[in-house]
Amino acid sequence: MSGYILFSSEMRAVIKAQHPDYSFGELSRLVGTEWRNLETAKKAEYEERAAKVAEQQERERA
C-alpha cells in the first residue's frame, strides 16, 4: 500500500460526501490535485502509515 492510496481512500469519502453528484473521474482528479498540493510532511505521514499497514498485512498473511 502506498501513501497515496491511503490518502485517496480517505479523501475520496470526504469529497464524495461534499459532492455526491461528482463522477468517479471528477473525484479522482480532485484527489490527485489535493495530493499534489499536500505538504511534504503530510505526505510523509501517509507514507509511514501505509508502510505500517503493509507490514501488518504481511504479518497476517504469514
Rank of each mutant, 00 (worst) to 15 (best):
M11S: 03
G3K: 00
N37H: 07
A41M: 08
G3Q: 01
Q56M: 12
E60T: 12
R49K: 09
A62Q: 03
A51S: 09
L38I: 04
V14M: 13
R59V: 11
K43I: 04
T40H: 13
A51F: 07
R49L: 04
K16Y: 05
R12I: 12
A50W: 04
F7A: 01
A41D: 11
R12G: 15
A62E: 14
Y4T: 01
S8W: 02
M11H: 07
W35D: 01
T40K: 09
F7C: 01
V31F: 02
Q56K: 11
S2M: 04
S9Y: 05
G32S: 14
T40P: 15
H19V: 02
A41V: 07
L38G: 00
A44G: 05
Y4M: 05
R49V: 03
E10K: 04
V53I: 15
I5D: 15
T33R: 15
W35H: 02
A50D: 01
E10F: 00
Q18G: 05
E47R: 07
S2G: 10
E39C: 13
Y46N: 01
Y46M: 02
E26K: 14
F7T: 01
E39D: 15
K16D: 03
V14F: 10
M11F: 04
E10T: 03
A13Q: 11
L30N: 06
G32F: 11
A54Q: 11
I15V: 09
Y4N: 04
L6C: 02
G3E: 00
Y4A: 04
M1Y: 05
A51V: 13
R61A: 12
G25L: 10
S8F: 08
F24N: 15
D21S: 08
S2Y: 03
E39M: 03
A50T: 01
E45K: 07
R12K: 11
E48Y: 07
D21R: 04
Y46K: 01
R36P: 00
K42M: 04
S23C: 05
Q57M: 08
K52S: 08
Q56D: 14
E34A: 14
D21C: 07
A17I: 04
I5P: 03
A44H: 10
A13M: 07
E47G: 06
E58K: 10
S8V: 09
R36Y: 07
H19S: 04
A17G: 07
Q18S: 07
P20G: 04
Y22P: 04
K43W: 00
K43D: 00
Q18V: 05
A54M: 09
V14R: 15
Y46C: 00
E48A: 12
R61Y: 07
I5F: 07
Q56A: 12
E55P: 11
V14E: 13
L6K: 04
F24V: 14
G3M: 00
F7V: 00
K42Y: 02
S9V: 06
S28G: 05
L30V: 13
R49E: 03
Y4H: 05
M1N: 14
A13I: 05
R59K: 15
R29D: 14
E34I: 10
K52M: 10
V31S: 03
E47Y: 05
Q18F: 00
K42H: 05
E58F: 07
Y4L: 03
E60H: 10
V14I: 12
P20R: 04
Y46D: 02
G3D: 01
E55C: 13
S9P: 00
E45G: 05
R36H: 12
G3L: 00
A44W: 08
D21N: 06
S9G: 06
T33M: 15
E60Y: 11
T40L: 11
K42L: 04
E47T: 05
R29M: 07
I15C: 05
M11C: 04
L6M: 06
T33I: 14
S28K: 09
E48F: 09
A62N: 09
R29Q: 06
S2D: 12
R59S: 13
R36V: 08
E58Y: 10
A41P: 05
M1H: 04
E10D: 04
W35G: 01
S28E: 15
I5T: 15
G32N: 14
R49D: 01
F7G: 02
Y46S: 01
M11R: 15
K16Q: 13
R49P: 00
A50Q: 02
A17N: 06
V31Q: 01
K52N: 07
L38D: 02
G3H: 00
Y4E: 12
W35Q: 02
Y46L: 01
